[in-house]
């Protein structure tokens, strides 16, 4: 087989499903657009704030406690990528390679436990 004309045909159905799902959602919205009523007045369009007058801008600075979670997520995501590849080729690699892979996993778990020990993941810390 020539790499020049390789087509990943098994992904065509995935793409078709994507299109179908989009069509379904947009179709539902359009159908609703024809039959639903529209009586707007300014109060209805106010953002919800428990019945009070909205105060201040909706976008404000938020506590940074979401950042450690997101950073850990990125690191673990990368680790999971390697973990999965290890899982697929587990029985066909040499012991040395397996040792390297397990070292890779353990070093990151070690870092994770360091964070846990230091309490960086406590939600109430900030």
């Amino acid at each position: 087989m020539n790499p020049e004309n390789y087509v990943p045909t098994e992904y065509l159905p995935l793409f078709i499903m994507l299109v179908l799902a989009t069509l379904f959602a947009i179709g539902g919205l359009l159908l609703g657009a024809f039959i639903r009523p529209r009586f707007y007045y300014p109060e209805k369009l106010e953002p919800y704030e428990c019945g009070n007058e909205p105060s201040g801008l909706p976008w404000q600075k938020i506590a940074i406690r979401y950042i450690p979670i997101a950073i850990l997520f990125v690191v673990f995501d990368v680790e999971i990528a390697f973990l999965y590849l290890l899982g697929v080729s587990f029985s066909s690699i040499s012991p040395l390679a397996l040792g390297g892979a397990i070292f890779f996993i353990f070093l990151i778990i070690l870092g994770f436990f360091y964070d846990l020990k230091k309490g960086y993941l406590e939600w109430t810390r900030f």
């Binding site: 950073i71 990125v74 690191v75 990368v78 390697f82």
Partner: peptide, 9 residues
């Protein structure tokens, strides 16, 4: 990809 993720973090 992996090192980019680490660098971004």
């Amino acid at each position: 990809m992996a090192s980019a993720a680490g660098a971004v973090a």
